[in-house]
């Protein structure tokens, strides 16, 4: 049984926050939503967990007690200790006593919060707060785990620890959906959805998204901007020739995932 959104439109204050968005989240896999601030990532996830009501389309999700969710901000109680946060979240899902002690002890150790159990949530660093929020969302082994930007502003070491938790949830059978503004996190997904202004501008496995790039991508090693669609990559330019003919001086190269994401946005901007 897969979960997700099917052709979902959400109106917020007369504006279409989402326009016919489809996202499929399969068990034992990770779906990643990639987009900037205001692209609709949070609205997608809020629709998925039932916090906003779509005006069109359908949402498939398991019963509420089988869902784990963290919003883009907070997701924990700053005035409670780490242990109190964990027991409160677990209690809401009926997890108590020895089962809770074992599971929370194991998860907190794994993310390096074992020694911080008596510190207040609000006193933890940003990275530690996000890790704690993720632990609180997956304590009860949810069938569907929904994480809104769990790694934004988190340093790479903590990010790897968050992704270790996410990987473990998927390996344990959960359907996981994660939103991010970091394009490279899309490479970790089984399926990626690229969002822009509330619409989907690309979807599929990372390999599918690369394979869907029309035309040719090339590199131009000069400071001068080459003609046609081009963007900087390091000290060089990347160019995209939708019909296949690269400008003079460009050497063709197979597109990477990051190229494919920029090209999807360029194509969407140019219109149909």
């Amino acid at each position: 049984m897969s979960w997700g959104l099917d052709g979902v439109t959400v109106r917020l204050g007369g504006r279409k926050a989402l326009d016919g968005v489809t996202v499929v989240v399969e068990p034992s896999s990770v779906a990643v939503l990639v987009g900037g601030d205001g692209s609709g990532k949070s609205t997608c996830l809020r629709a998925m967990v039932g916090l906003v009501r779509p005006s069109a389309g359908t949402v498939r999700r398991p019963p509420k007690q089988e869902v784990g969710y963290i919003p883009a901000t907070a997701g924990l109680y700053p005035d409670l200790t780490v242990d109190e946060n964990v027991s409160f979240a677990a209690g809401a899902f009926g997890l108590t006593g020895r089962a809770l002690a074992t599971r929370s002890g194991e998860l907190l150790e794994r993310i390096g919060l074992g020694d911080a159990r008596h510190r207040l949530g609000g006193q933890l660093s940003g990275g530690m707060q996000r890790k704690l929020a993720v632990v609180m969302a997956l304590l009860h082994r949810p069938t569907l785990l929904v994480l809104d930007e769990p790694t934004t502003g988190v340093d790479p070491v903590s990010r790897a620890e968050v992704w270790r938790l996410i990987s473990g949830a998927a390996a344990g059978g959960a359907a996981v959906v994660v939103s991010t503004t970091y394009v490279d996190e899309g490479r970790r997904a089984s399926s990626v959805t690229l969002l822009e202004s509330g619409g989907v501008i690309g979807s599929g496995s990372p390999a599918d998204i690369v394979a869907a790039v029309p035309g040719t991508v090339g590199v131009v090693r000069s400071a001068a901007r080459p003609p046609g669609p081009a963007w900087r990559w390091g000290s060089a330019w990347r160019v995209w020739a939708p019909t296949g003919a690269l400008p003079d001086g460009a050497e063709p190269r197979p597109p990477e995932f990051e190229d494919a994401v920029v090209i999807a946005a360029l194509a969407a901007e140019a219109g149909p």
């Binding site: 900037g36 502003g153 503004t181 394009v183 963007w231 900087r232 990051e258 920029v262 946005a265 360029l266």
Partner: peptide, 9 residues
């Protein structure tokens, strides 16, 4: 931080 891929480019 928080900028869409094209805006970042």
């Amino acid at each position: 931080s928080g900028v869409a891929p094209l805006g970042r480019a």
